[in-house]
């Protein structure tokens, strides 16, 4: 949240409004209808967890094995009717950070691993690429989950697997109020800009007081919000949307997908296909 505020302070008010609108679009995506949308949230959540777990467990040099894991997010995007470009566009701020994780690997691991003609590729380069792919694939799978499931259903699923109520409530309220806080930032930024014409973004000297003001406003807001919850009998536990019981098809989906992930993990499908093609 604070990170978002810093980014917003730097970027300016038009971008804040655009960010608010973009966040709201997630609800529209979750409201679409498709076979993926209709899957039980818990089934989708478990499948996503297993997918991420299997994806990150690949060996750092197992590039050919890992690449096959792309099949799951690609198929899910196709079935959900959500464009893959939407995913990359919405994750454009996080993706470079994820890709930057393995950036220094080539400097530490210089042992030659692969030769393509005269070009020798070091282990560091391969591990950098696999790290990037693991990050990107995991983000894609997470995105397909959150964009095809309403927040209320996500929270209900999290409670079903006994994630503590405090964490789930925090998630729900953060998502609900992040747009309100961004609107607050937008108003404050407008007030600043009107008295600082020609300035790009907000001067770093004002960041402290700006964030302080935002914190105070959010504290006032949270106090009122909590009062309102207490007055309606809140006792520490939210009643989330009544998610219907999972159908057999939902659980078959999770089982089939999980089996497939483990097959991809232990059988190098790309290599197998390559061998078949070469023999043919």
């Amino acid at each position: 949240m604070i990170m978002t505020c810093f980014v917003l302070l730097y970027t300016g008010m038009e971008k804040i409004d655009a960010a608010v609108a973009e966040l709201r679009e997630m609800d529209d995506l979750a409201a679409l209808e498709s076979p993926v949308h209709s899957l039980h949230p818990l089934a989708k959540l478990l499948t996503t967890f297993i997918y991420i777990f299997v994806t990150v467990s690949f060996d750092k040099y197992d590039l050919s094995g890992l690449i096959v894991m792309l099949v799951y997010p690609v198929l899910m995007f196709q079935a959900s009717g959500i464009k893959m470009s939407t995913c990359f566009y919405k994750l454009r701020i996080v993706l470079p950070l994820v890709c930057a994780v393995g950036l220094f690997n080539p400097f530490f691991d210089k042992a030659p691993m692969l030769s393509i003609g005269a070009l020798t590729v070091s282990g560091g380069v391969i591990s950098m690429i696999t790290l990037m792919m693991k990050g990107v694939f995991s983000l894609m799978a997470s995105f397909i989950f959150v964009s095809t499931t309403s927040l209320d259903a996500i929270c209900a699923a999290l409670r079903k697997i006994h994630i503590p109520s405090v964490i789930v409530t925090l998630l729900l309220l953060t998502f609900r109020y992040v747009t309100v806080m961004m609107e607050e930032v937008s108003v404050m930024t407008t007030a600043y800009m009107l008295r600082a014409p020609g300035q790009k973004g907000i001067n770093y000297k004002a960041w402290g007081s700006f964030l302080g003001q935002l914190l105070l406003r959010s504290m006032d807001r949270s106090e009122e919000l909590y009062s309102s919850m207490l007055l309606r009998g809140f006792n520490g536990e939210f009643s989330y949307a009544d998610v219907p019981k999972g159908r057999l098809a939902d659980w078959l989906f999770t089982i089939a997908a999980s089996v497939l992930f483990f097959v991809f993990r232990y059988v190098n499908v790309a290599e197998l296909l390559g061998n078949i093609i070469m023999r043919g």
């Binding site: 209320d152 729900l172 609900r176 109020y177 309100v180 807001r221 009122e224 309102s228 919850m229």
Partner: peptide, 8 residues
């Protein structure tokens, strides 16, 4: 806004 904290 301080009163309406649920999604819908």
């Amino acid at each position: 806004d301080n009163q309406m904290f649920m999604p819908t």
